[in-house]
Design a binder for these strands. Structure first.
Length: 108
DNA sequence: ACGTTGACCTATA
DNA sequence: GTATAGGCCAACG
């Protein structure tokens, strides 16, 4: 496993419950700005990881739950987020700015 | 080895 | 404001 993915998983695990972040923010935090697609691919691998990775707390920059289809059920991601206090409406995070968690500001 | 795809983002028009 | 184009790099067929 490349250090990139390992770092992605580590950052994602640091996301507190009830907060979300974006692929671009993680990619930028890791110094691979522009390679946000790799973060998405890392999320795809997150299911194989031995440790639990809250991939449901990672959405795109619009707060849209684009990756929900990759979960067991399309509503799984939404249910997980709502269970943590994040309100979802029309597959979008309500008050995205309010629940946004920036790794750049929190970690580095 | 090559072409296509993808849980994205930024920039132009 | 929406629409389209380009870029990023790894995985898959």
């Amino acid at each position: 496993m490349s250090d990139f993915y390992q770092d992605v998983f580590e950052v994602v695990r640091q996301i507190p419950a009830g907060k979300v972040t974006s692929y671009g923010a993680i990619a930028r935090y890791l110094g691979s700005a522009g390679s946000s697609r790799m973060v998405g691919w890392a999320m795809n691998l997150s299911h194989h990881q031995p440790v639990y990775v809250p991939a449901h707390r990672v959405v795109n920059r619009n707060g849209l739950l684009t990756g929900k289809i990759h979960f067991g059920s399309p509503c799984q991601m939404q249910e997980l987020l709502e269970n943590e206090g994040v309100v979802i409406k029309d597959d979008c995070v309500v008050n995205f700015q309010g629940v946004f968690w920036d790794p750049m500001a929190e970690l580095g």
